[in-house]
Design a protein around this nucleic acid. Structure first.
Length: 139
RNA sequence: ACGGUAACCGUCUCUAUCGCUGGCAGUGCGUGCAAACGUGCUGCGAGAGGAAAGUCCGGGCAACUCGAGCCACCAUACUUCCUAACGGGAAGGCGGCAGGAAGGAAAGCGUCCUGCCGACAGCAAGUGCCACAGAAAGACAAACCGCCUACGGGCAAGGGUGCAAGCGCGAGGUAAGAGCUCACGACAGGUGGCAGUGAUGCCGCCCGAUGGCAAACCUUAUGGGUUGAAAGACCAAAUAUACCGGCAGUUAAGGGCUGGCUCGCCCGUUGCCGAGGGGUAGGUCGAUAGAGGCCGGCGGCGACGUCGGCAGUAGAUUGAUGAUAGAGGCUGUCGCAUUGCGACAGGACAGAACCCGGCUUACGUGGUUGCCGUUUUC
RNA sequence: GGCUCCUUAGCUCAACUGAAUAGAGCAUCUGACUACGGAUCAGAAGGUUGCAGGUUUGAAUCCUGCAGGAGUCA
């Protein structure tokens, strides 16, 4: 359940290009989140979501700091993943998303873990709005 | 004992839960005749550094290029050795700095010893530069003050300028002076002897264009083909498709079989099917056993070499080592109290990406050794 | 992973081949002019030449090592 294997990471160059070209985006400090609904057949079977985690070389000059941020992010995503997967499987949909760390200092694990509670709920809300548009949006 | 400095060595340990990347074993599923491959699960065991960094040098490896020589460009620069190679290292020479010892009336004044440092070839191959100041900044020199004078001039001793003014000191010499001459000494060049593999050192003779700058142009000697794993090799979906074959359609364009017409055949053209080359996404290899590490013997002052033995899968590719909790050890502060206990805090610099040998830079703490200083005891 | 270049006053740039006081425009400050402001005129202040060493009598300049910032190669 709380695993994070290779098939759950976004590696396809074409999907990455498509995500940043035509995906949706919102910011929840310290992350900027790109996400996009993706056809099921493009992802490996049994995988409701693929994620990409990135950090800017301009914000963190040293590789050890970039690795630290990505490891903390990965750990948080791993622990919050079941909530997201449960929602996606209920609605029979698949997404790809990118988590880009935009702060320029390293936050503690506890802080990031707290942020991920809100990040997950915001993401589910955004996907929900995309799948079931509110009636006011449709004339 | 403490502190400083230089060099070298090490880079906290253990346990539990969840998770990541390889490996091995078992097992389920799929493909396949099978071997095997892919994928899921379970178990076992492995998983960052002394700098992995900067990319400053040198190699391996790979592709491309290449008849030879010269020039240009770049790099290096005391000697000998080590090494696959090096701009790296070892030992030595020379020079500088610091300290000590004996000497000396005294002065780094020479000698000896110790430690540290040195981009340390050539300015006596040529060219160039040396601001301001100064008479003059490198030349068969030059006269501002000054010295001498027979009033034509002569003079580099003294003053002054400056980072730097034609070697130092004494004597002779002279109108006054001058390496002009001589003795002693310093420096550079040539030459001979001795010691050393050599740099070089010591001793003698000859000579004297006796300032500095080559991290100024340059000269000499040696080396350098270019590009770097995003190198390179292989497999290869979908879509489009060169070329080839088959079937069907069409004379609505065309050509040939004839000088003309008709029919037929062939080429062509269109569509479908098959086969197929290049090649994209993607994947595999390159790619982790290496000029490797540890221990011991032998050779060498040493870098290092050699012989024997031992142990050992890091290998990702949007890029694996993390999170949480506990215990121990280390350092600092405080308290109790005395060399123990308790509390609190801290734990650096930093993350492999084809692989090695160096260099440089960053860095908390612990240990070892050399040298120096302070204090105490003998 | 490889390669190339840059760093000078608050900003934009000079200073050629080393020479001592590092210069110009804009901006800032002071004064003049004006009823006041702008414009104009006169003057002033402002620099560890990215940092640390070295060569040299002397370094923004030459050399070495760092730091920061750009660009480039699929």
């Amino acid at each position: 359940m709380y695993t994070f294997g290779k098939h759950e990471r976004l590696c396809s160059k074409k999907l990455i290009d498509a995500l940043f070209l035509s995906g949706h985006k919102f910011i929840l400090f310290p992350y900027s989140v790109h996400w996009m609904v993706c056809p099921r057949e493009l992802l490996p079977p049994g995988t409701p979501a693929q994620v990409l985690i990135a950090t800017s070389k301009k914000k963190f000059h040293h590789a050890v700091d970039r690795n630290r941020v990505k490891r903390l992010t990965r750990e948080c995503y791993r622990l919050h993943k079941p909530t997201l997967y449960q929602y996606l499987e209920c609605h029979d949909t698949t997404i790809v998303l990118a988590l880009n760390y935009i702060h320029n200092e390293i936050l503690s694990y506890q802080t990031l873990n707290h942020k991920f509670d809100r990040l997950t709920s915001m993401l589910i809300e955004a996907v929900n709005k995309q799948l079931n548009p509110p009636p006011s949006q449709q004339p």
